[in-house]
Write a protein that binds this DNA or RNA. Structure first.
Lengths: 337, 337
DNA sequence: CATTTCACCGAAAGCGCTTTCGATAAATTT
DNA sequence: AAATTTATCGAAAGCGCTTTCGGTGAAATG
């Protein structure tokens, strides 16, 4: 591999000139530049990123943090899709993603500390709750940052239009004739969950539909299992809902399972609409009607926002809301007469 | 944040002593060590990782490469589960993962080049095919490496016992009375796909079952859509199979969809067993019988293998095969009389 | 021809850290 | 008391790169 010194020795120029040639400075002649570039290619020379970072104070890395709140890490299809699209967008600009932990050679440290240590150029945080003090610490720091799927006025945020999403779902159900519409919600500590609840409530209110006791039920942290349990308690209600809007596809799948296990049919007996449009939702039976979040756009937009902050060297606080779509499939149908 | 110089100035010691104190050298008294550590904590000092790497030639980073073969990236639940478990294991030892691309500030480069540039301590490659020259280049390099889900004699590899997996599936079907057993295979360029085919063939042979024309069909790169298509051509066969072993859960889900769309029932008309045991497989209808790969163990073992090479500074070539389990659920049943 | 401009190159400092090796003073041995 | 060991510290070099600033000769200008 060799260093810049080797390259200087081989070509007979100084390391200064070599460096300049490689970095396209204007004060090196085309002829010597060609020689140096050629020699570099011949010996397979590659600049050492650490040396570069040390010298330029620019690491071309972006730290990514997943909240550990609900132990899903990068396994959750939704966050996963976002990070994938984020990755594509950033790598195109020359950035590498680094997943840092809170462990530095057995020294326990915060994410901020770890990111400072790694000298990342920017941070993206995904899948978080407001209460997480690690996230707050990151937001209060001076490193460029963008957070996804959470609301905050102290930094750039991008998330789906969860309010409209909730409304969309409820209205769809209403148009199918449903009046007894329940909501299996995400935990209230999660902004997204909260907004969907709000959307549900507003829509119900606008439609002059009361929300019977027990119809708004906490489904926790969006897992299949929790969705199933929530649905079971919903089924045990004296006045069973004819439709349920579930705040996440995985929960919705759990809910459908509970319904089936109770000997009922979706959508014949109960309609269900999910949220996210994860890949699986179009392959479960029945195919899930759901509110699609535009993960592609969210990830890409987050990337743009972050990189803009990095290159302009100034933090920016914007909140961008990405529209959602209702995808009607087979899990919703007209209410039974 | 400050540098080691600031810390030296504050405490009155030389940077040498400060560095030693922070790194637990024995030739610094307990008293001064305490002072320095305290001062470091007070000013929130954190060593710059790039400077450290430059000096020690150790970056405490591991490069991860996903093959781009089938465009799934980190979205595939199986690879995703592996990388997650790998991450946990490595971060516990103080390593950070870095996802590098082939783009370095608009200069196209190979993964190896990128990893050299970043000076990673080791590499893990996931989800690959033998033909990928990027992977081959990595394997031939001198950087410690471990590859997952692929076979090779030139480096450490760890993958599932796909041969047994195929056999397990076929035998299970046989015991249920099936004799017309088809196989929707993964592409033959993928080692895992190939081994499962082999397992299928061997099992059929041992059971003295012929493999009718068209019963061994290529399902491509494990996507739902490809599985569906493969199943459709299987259904069009003059002599339809009563059971099908599918080389991946996503393909199996596609296959079941094709079956349902043809107006048939799983497992009543056709039994299907998948491969992987992705999370969703226990939530589709009917719940999928499948061969479970122990992603937890694969990831963890890969991590151990890699770290061992890193600390011992020598490459090692082992091939470790992780056992699989047959998980019987509802997509398989006795053959129709 | 003298002067100014311009194109091209290199010395040197600096980025923040580690590590070798020598220096000093205190403690221990003879 | 002299010689030796031990404990503690720091100077300096080095890791591989960027960037400022000045220097040189050739070309352009008067």
């Amino acid at each position: 591999m060799g260093t810049i010194y080797d390259l200087a020795k081989i070509t007979g120029f100084s390391i200064t000139t070599v460096s300049k040639a490689l970095n396209n400075y204007s004060d090196v002649s085309e002829k010597t530049k060609a020689k140096i570039v050629q020699a570099a290619a011949d010996m397979g020379y590659l600049p050492n990123a650490h040396a570069q970072s040390l010298s330029t104070k620019r690491s071309w890395t972006i730290g990514v943090m997943f909240s550990e709140a609900n132990e899903v890490g990068m396994m959750h299809p939704f966050f996963n899709a976002i990070i994938e699209s984020f990755r594509k967008a950033t790598e195109q600009q020359g950035y590498d993603l680094i997943f840092a932990s809170r462990n530095l050679r057995n020294r326990d440290m915060s994410y901020l500390e770890h990111f400072q240590h790694r000298a990342v150029d920017g941070i993206v945080v995904i899948c978080s709750d407001q209460m997480d003090k690690h996230v707050q610490e990151l937001i209060q720091s001076s490193i460029p940052i963008v957070v996804v799927d959470m609301d905050s006025t102290d930094c750039s945020v991008v998330f789906s239009d969860n309010l409209s999403g909730g409304t969309l779902a409820v209205n769809h159900l209403y148009e199918l004739g449903h009046r007894l519409i329940a909501h299996i919600a995400g935990d209230m500590t999660i902004d997204a969950g909260l907004a969907r609840i709000e959307g549900y409530k507003q829509a119900m209110d606008r439609l002059a539909l009361p929300i019977p006791d027990g119809y708004l039920i906490n489904g926790g942290f969006f897992s299949v299992e929790e969705g199933k349990q929530a649905m079971q308690t919903l089924l045990a209600l004296p006045k069973r809902p004819t439709a349920v809007f579930v705040a996440g596809d995985q929960m919705a799948i759990g809910a459908m399972e509970a319904i089936h296990e109770a000997g009922l049919q979706v959508p014949h007996d109960i309609s269900v609409v999910g949220y996210d449009d994860i890949e699986m939702s179009k392959y479960v039976t029945p195919k899930l009607t759901t509110v699609r979040q535009d993960t592609e756009r969210i990830g890409q937009h987050a990337a743009e926002l972050l990189i803009e902050q990095i290159v302009n060297k100034r933090r920016v606080m914007t909140t961008d809301i990405i529209p959602v779509d209702l995808i009607v499939r087979q899990s919703t149908g007209p209410v039974k007469p």
